[in-house]
Computed example of a mutant assay.
Amino acid sequence: MGKAVIKAADSAGLNIVPLSFGSAVENGKTVQVCGKDILIHGPDDRENVLASVFDEHPNLVVVDYTVPSAVNDNAELYCKVGVPFVMGTTGGDRDRLYKTVEDSKVYAVISPQMGKQVVAFLAAMEIMAEQFPGAFSGYSLQVMESHQTSKVDTSGTAKAVISCFQKLGVSFDVDQIQMIRDPQRQLEMVGVPEEHLSGHAFHMYHLTSPDQTVSFEFQHNVCGRSIYAEGTVDAVIFLAKKVQSKADKLIYNMIDVLREGNMR
């Protein structure tokens, strides 16, 4: 995701600060993306490094695509330094995440789903759930989501969609989600193209009426990461404007970005 965001940001004409954080074994390494050498810093001195970069680039916006176990520590770092950030990483303690940002008065876009079109679908689901509660009462639900093996947590998008179905009257627990992470099953059962096994998001939601005579199916399949990278760049531009205008609201999501319009 980091490489995809760099490419999208470069295409949008944003100034990319050639710096990233990684593990201790990656400290001092460089990764070349879009002709730029991105220097990776380990965890030991990252507060000083980030503070120094923020002093040099006061309009800096950090983009976070890491792992669930890093979400809260990373957010606390950004808030301690005072740098605005876009959090595309799912998982972690979300209540703690929001409280950290609120207490620090730092601007942030936090969203488990950065793909604009998928977010629009989620918004439509939320509107339906709000306006027609109980419309699917009694219906059974099957949910399958397939992601690359490196995604260790359950899809935040799937959780959000399930929440809408619950408001629509469907009884379903998140632990009933069928998570597919095995590449062979993804090829044979899900139909993921082989070239996208390392980066994809296939979701299927199947509803069936109590008497089995009516069924609905919602599906969204994403190959690659460009959809998330493009949405992330829009979120960065959106957040930079909020910081510049000293907006009263501090925490935003991708629906806020969509509503603002003027996206690439």
Rank of each mutant, 00 (worst) to 15 (best):
Asp73Trp: 04
Val81Glu: 14
Pro84Asp: 06
Asn48Ser: 13
Ala51Gln: 12
Met114Trp: 00
Ser52Gln: 12
Glu26Lys: 08
Glu47Phe: 10
Gly91His: 05
Arg96Cys: 13
Pro133Ser: 15
Ala124Ile: 15
Gly91Phe: 07
Glu76Cys: 02
Val67Tyr: 07
Asp64Tyr: 01
Ala108Tyr: 09
Val118Arg: 00
His41Ser: 09
Asp55Ser: 09
Thr66Ala: 14
Gly88Pro: 05
Phe132Trp: 13
Gly35Met: 10
Leu39Val: 13
Phe132Gln: 14
Ala75Arg: 01
Leu122Phe: 02
Glu47Ala: 14
Asn74Gln: 05
Val83Arg: 03
Asp64Val: 06
Asp45Arg: 06
Ala129Met: 14
Tyr98Phe: 14
Ser52His: 06
Met87Thr: 00
Val53Trp: 15
Met128Trp: 09
Val63Ala: 02
Asp55His: 15
Asn72Thr: 01
Lys105Leu: 04
Gly42Ile: 03
Asp93Phe: 12
Phe121Gln: 03
Tyr98Ile: 08
Asp45Thr: 10
Met87Gln: 15
Arg94Tyr: 08
Met128Ile: 09
Met125Pro: 00
Ala124Asn: 11
Gln117Leu: 10
Phe85Ala: 07
Thr89Met: 07
Ala120Leu: 15
Lys80Ile: 01
Val106Ile: 06
Val101His: 05
Gln32Met: 13
Pro133Asp: 11
Tyr98Leu: 15
Asn27Arg: 06
Gln32Cys: 11
Val118Ile: 13
Ala129Ser: 15
Val71Gln: 02
Thr89Cys: 10
Val81Tyr: 07
Thr30Lys: 09
Ser104Met: 04
Asp95Gln: 15
Thr30Tyr: 12
Leu77Ile: 08
Val67Phe: 06
Ala51Thr: 09
Val86Tyr: 05
Asp55Cys: 08
Glu56Gln: 12
Lys80Phe: 06
Ser104Gln: 06
Val109Asn: 02
Asp95Tyr: 10
Pro43Ser: 09
Ile127Phe: 11
Ser104Arg: 14
Asp93Ile: 10
Val101Phe: 10
Val71Cys: 03
Asp64Ser: 12
Lys29Val: 05
Leu122His: 06
Glu102Val: 03
Phe54Leu: 03
Met125Cys: 15
Ala75Met: 05
Gly91Ile: 04
His57Met: 00
